[in-house]
Amino acid sequence: MKLSRSIRLGIGTIAVALAATACGGDETRSVSTSAENGSLTVGIKFDQPGLGLRNPDGSFSGFDVEVAKYVAQQLGVPAENIEFKEAPSPQRETLIQNGEVDYIVATYSITDSRKEKVDFAGPYFVAGQSLLVRADETEITGPDSLSGGKRLCSVAGSTPAQNVKENYAQDVQLQEFDTYSACVEALRNRAVDAVTTDDIILAGYAAQSPGDFKVVGEPFTEERYGIGLAKGDDESRNRINDAIEQMVSSGAWEAAFQETVGASGYPLPDAPQVDRY
């Protein structure tokens, strides 16, 4: 039977759409299935010294990287079969929902709003929000001292800057960049007065530039870092939780911390308790 031109065009359009869906990254992934197939794609930060950093030679280092590798190993995937993908803060949920990564280990705080879109294993670390300032700064000692129109930098898609504005200094001037490294450069160039995010992240930047910056004040939030994965992938979440508990009990968690973050002077915190929600 000969089809009309309009029908042929319609069928062709449907075929193209189906092909795009099959080839595109709009389907969530099962971590366990990827592991069984022998490889994993893991989202990390590329610009956070001590946590997730892409080195000049193309290798990756940091505590989050070591956690990601340990989890992969427990799932049966060696480090050489991990593809690390950059996971900027504003894109983390999208990367998981689109199936572009299997899981994300990127200073990813577990929050109720995020749990509406993705699931979390962990926490694997508990940090607290703080402030980074220039070494010669004397006026800024904590979030309350940011009043008077101080310029505060954080990353778009993260919660720390908004937390300061809502709870401490309503007249602070917020500047949001794509990365914390851009915030640190703005601080160095005196374009902003302080950078806010979790204390462990700030300690890494301070250690990277000795004598230029300092972390001030006591932490004023609790940030529970989780491993983000596709919503509803319960089997994989349970297996990753098992891996985190094994990392802690075996001593590998403390060893990874000392090898990556310890040099910054950040004190070893208590080991986290996995939340089996």
Rank of each mutant, 00 (worst) to 15 (best):
G149F: 06
G38V: 01
V101C: 03
Y205I: 07
D275C: 08
A161Q: 00
N241P: 10
D193H: 11
E176Q: 15
S4T: 15
E86M: 10
G226W: 09
A22D: 01
E223K: 06
P219C: 06
A87F: 04
T197Y: 09
R92C: 06
I140V: 08
A135D: 08
A17W: 12
I200R: 00
A243R: 08
V192K: 08
T111A: 02
G62R: 10
K117Q: 14
T196L: 00
L95N: 06
V31C: 09
K2G: 08
A203G: 02
W253N: 02
E245M: 09
A207Y: 06
P56E: 14
K231S: 13
Q97G: 00
T28G: 14
I14C: 14
T33S: 13
K231T: 05
M247H: 07
A169L: 09
Q273W: 04
Q173W: 02
D119Q: 07
R239S: 10
V274Y: 14
V65H: 03
R29M: 02
E166W: 00
Q246N: 13
T197N: 12
S34Q: 12
D199C: 05
E86R: 10
Q173S: 04
D212G: 00
S39L: 07
S61Q: 15
L132T: 01
A230C: 08
L9T: 15
T196M: 02
Y103D: 08
V248W: 13
A68G: 11
N37W: 10
S250G: 07
A186F: 03
K150N: 09
A156F: 12
V65S: 03
A127F: 05
S39R: 14
V248H: 13
Q175K: 13
P210N: 12
Y266I: 02
S113I: 08
Q73A: 14
V118H: 04
L202W: 00
R188D: 08
R92V: 05
E80A: 15
I201P: 00
V248E: 13
I200Q: 03
A20G: 14
D212A: 01
P78R: 01
G50K: 02
L187Q: 05
E185W: 06
Y180E: 01
A203E: 01
V261M: 05
G226R: 09
Y168S: 01
T28W: 10
K150P: 09
G25F: 11
L131M: 07
V71N: 05
E235N: 12
G25C: 04
D144W: 10
